[in-house]
């Protein structure tokens, strides 16, 4: 019983991050009808940008001291005499890294938004109005370009990047079982869920969101009603890159930075299809379910089996419900 709860909570937390990645794929699909096969590589770029701004730049000789590690007098004073591995010590360690984390996140967001805009402007915009198949295949080609490009720009792999939140261990008892969590994982999951909720609310209630939904419904009608469809496309891609940057930073702190981060995109693509391409709710539920299933598989069969859980799950779901758990059935005109 105790183990189930522990792994279930771990699963929910990684599921929340899957949901954050998935929201990028769903947003681009809703606006442009293009399924972005390269979203995982956009995330990988986010992770590398975070790594650049949080680790590489502070490592330069010209970096100011507060950027490398922020140590005001009161912080040093508080650190004195603390025992090893104390929760307060973890918080203080995080505080010294805080400038790096903040600049890293801002840098990753800005740089990734530029990457997203370039992709939209250079590759997607010229193909507008042509078959969606061509645009999807362009994103397939982007997989190779981005994965090769990242290896070209950032030659070395990195293992350590500063975490987004203090890494305090949290212990509490739930139904008579001891649960053990890391503070940073919890904060990551909360960030992911909040962002997911914010984006869904934005699409539902703001003017830009209504434009996205109108474009999703019917592009030419939306165009004739005065909605600038190219701008909606650009906005959707930027949204995907921004969530991708955050997700990339989170994944970088969990798994280290390497080109294999791009593979997350494929498992999340499987999750998205499982939930239904155009349904935020369905995708959220599917992400949590896959997260929990993965954690359970990891517990029962070992870590490497967890990797194929999303793929097996999506095959089973597609066979039974071709448009995903909550997806709308496409109505085709003959």
């Amino acid at each position: 019983m105790g183990q189930i709860l522990q792994f279930g909570i771990n699963g929910l937390m990684s599921g929340a991050i899957y949901a954050l990645i998935a929201v990028g794929i769903v947003s681009v699909f809703k606006a442009t009808k293009v399924v972005n096969f390269a979203h995982g590589y956009l995330i990988m770029f986010g992770a590398y940008f975070y790594f650049t701004f949080a680790v590489l730049l502070p490592g330069m000789s010209w970096a100011p001291a507060w950027y490398v590690s922020w140590e005001p007098a009161w912080l040093v004073e508080m650190k004195e005499g603390l025992p090893m591995f104390s929760p307060l010590g973890a918080v203080l360690d995080w505080l010294t890294n805080l400038p790096r984390v903040i600049i890293g996140l801002i840098g990753a967001l800005a740089a990734n938004a530029v990457v997203g805009l370039i992709i939209e402007r250079v590759l997607m915009r010229p193909l507008m109005g042509q078959s969606v198949f061509a645009m999807i295949m362009v994103t397939v080609g982007l997989i190779s370009v981005m994965s090769g490009g990242a290896q070209l720009i950032w030659t070395a792999d990195a293992n350590y990047v500063p975490s987004l939140a203090p890494n305090t261990p949290i212990r509490f008892t739930l139904f008579d079982t001891q649960i053990f969590l890391f503070g940073t994982d919890l904060v990551n999951a909360v960030i992911a869920v909040l962002l997911f909720g914010a984006i869904v609310a934005m699409v539902q209630f703001t003017k830009g969101g209504v434009a996205i939904r109108a474009t999703a419904e019917d592009q030419s009608t939306a165009y004739s009603m005065g909605i600038s469809v190219p701008r909606v496309f650009a906005r959707a891609w930027v949204l995907a890159s921004l969530t991708g940057a955050i997700a990339g930073a989170i994944l970088a702190t969990r798994n280290g930075v390497s080109p294999s981060l791009g593979l997350f995109g494929f498992s999340v693509l499987a999750i998205v299809l499982m939930g239904g391409l155009d349904s935020y709710v369905g995708v959220f539920i599917a992400a949590l379910v896959v997260g929990v299933l993965e954690a359970m598989t990891q517990w029962k069969f070992g870590g490497d089996w967890a990797g194929i859980v999303p793929y097996v799950a999506v095959l089973l779901v597609i066979l039974v419900r071709p448009h995903g758990l909550f997806g709308q059935k496409e109505v085709e005109r003959i």
Partner: peptide, 13 residues
């Protein structure tokens, strides 16, 4: 190796 990888992608695109 990365350049060769990129070449495939650029060819597709």
């Amino acid at each position: 190796a990365p350049l060769q990888e990129m070449a495939f992608g650029f060819l597709i695109i």
